[in-house]
């Protein structure tokens, strides 16, 4: 073995996404003829989820597959590029931007000074919205007490009239159950379903309208630079395939879970009309500019993003 990569995930060991990432790790081993060994570590196993960037830079772990918005506190630009709420309505749209629309170059321009190299992006897909109140459009968000994580999502919902509550993931379930909050930004439908969130909040919105996190696959820059070109290419191409694999497998799981929820009854799945989705999108994109003003890099992200979306006729 020439290279061992310890890669920490932002997913827990029992979550389907972690298994998908482990399968990717095994494939990299095969594709490289055993020259690269990737060891996937579950979330928080070596360092906490928000600390992986520092740990990679310090050479403690070698890489991560994680939500870039966890590093919003380092630079608001990370929050904007990770989840420009309203920009993407499908994984392929985001992946095209990263691969061909300047996203990749931008990520590396931002990450390399920290000592990381960005290999590629993947995503679990559009997150479904968890709610105990029926929501059929933007107007229903008014006064909705909802949990939102760090990053742009919180601000967008505030702009849409909701009252974001900043409680941690560990209290989402009990708070939903006891009606301390009405709704929560959690994750994809199938995982929300498995965690029992729909048992206590019976009005999910699917497909989601609010968030699609970008997970970055990055490694320590020195380690990357020390790799021969063929191994670098193997990693790049394998990450491109991981993106497709993750999207496909999780979308299937989502659809299966939705079908099951429909068959079992008890849960009312709400789907927003194109009109309502556009309304939310408008509110969301109006927030981008605000974030862009917060740092030089955020402005760069904003410019690149808007240029790409305009060229593609998406805005």
């Amino acid at each position: 073995q020439e290279f061992t990569l310890k890669v920490q995930s932002s997913d827990a060991a029992g979550v389907p996404n972690f298994v998908i990432e482990q399968e990717w790790a095994a494939r990299v081993g095969k594709m490289s003829g055993g020259r690269i060994a990737v060891e996937m570590l579950p979330v928080n196993s070596v360092v906490e989820h928000a600390e992986t960037q520092d740990a990679i830079a310090a050479g403690i772990i070698d890489g991560h597959i994680t939500d870039t918005s966890y590093f919003t506190g380092k630079d608001p630009a990370f929050g904007l590029i990770a989840n420009p709420v309203g920009a993407w309505s499908a994984p392929s749209e985001m992946l095209r931007f990263v691969e061909y629309g300047g996203g990749k170059e931008l990520m590396n321009e931002m990450l390399e000074p920290y000592g990381l190299h960005f290999i590629g992006a993947v995503t679990p897909g559009l997150e479904a919205f968890v709610s105990s109140k029926p929501l059929d459009g933007v107007a229903d968000l008014k006064g909705l007490k909802m949990r939102a994580p760090e990053g742009m999502v919180q601000e967008v919902f505030a702009a849409a009239g909701a009252s974001p509550v900043n409680i941690p993931q560990s209290e989402v379930f009990t708070s939903l159950d006891k009606k301390v909050i009405d709704a929560a930004d959690a994750t994809v439908f199938s995982t929300n379903q498995a965690m029992g969130l729909h048992d206590v909040a019976k009005h999910p919105v699917y497909p989601g309208f609010h968030s699609m996190p970008m997970l970055e696959v990055s490694v320590n820059k020195e380690k990357w630079d020390s790799m021969p070109e063929d191994l670098q290419t193997i990693l790049e191409v394998s990450v491109r395939d991981l993106a497709r694999d993750m999207d496909a497998q999780l979308a299937m799981k989502d659809m299966e879970a939705v079908a099951k929820a429909r068959a079992e009854g008890g849960v009312t799945i709400h789907n927003w009309s194109a009109e309502e989705r556009n309304k939310f999108r408008k509110i969301a994109t109006s927030q981008w500019e605000k974030v862009a003003g917060r740092s030089e890099n955020a402005q760069k992200v904003y410019d690149t993003l808007v240029k790409y979306l305009t060229a593609q006729g998406m805005i």
């Binding site: 827990a12 060991a13 560990s170 379930f173 159950d177 498995a194 965690m195 029992g196």
Partner: peptide, 19 residues
Amino acid sequence: PPSIVLIIYGLTANVSIGD
């Protein structure tokens, strides 16, 4: 209940915290 041990287990194991 409520129990932080069970909540952390639920998040790790992807099982219903209510259950």
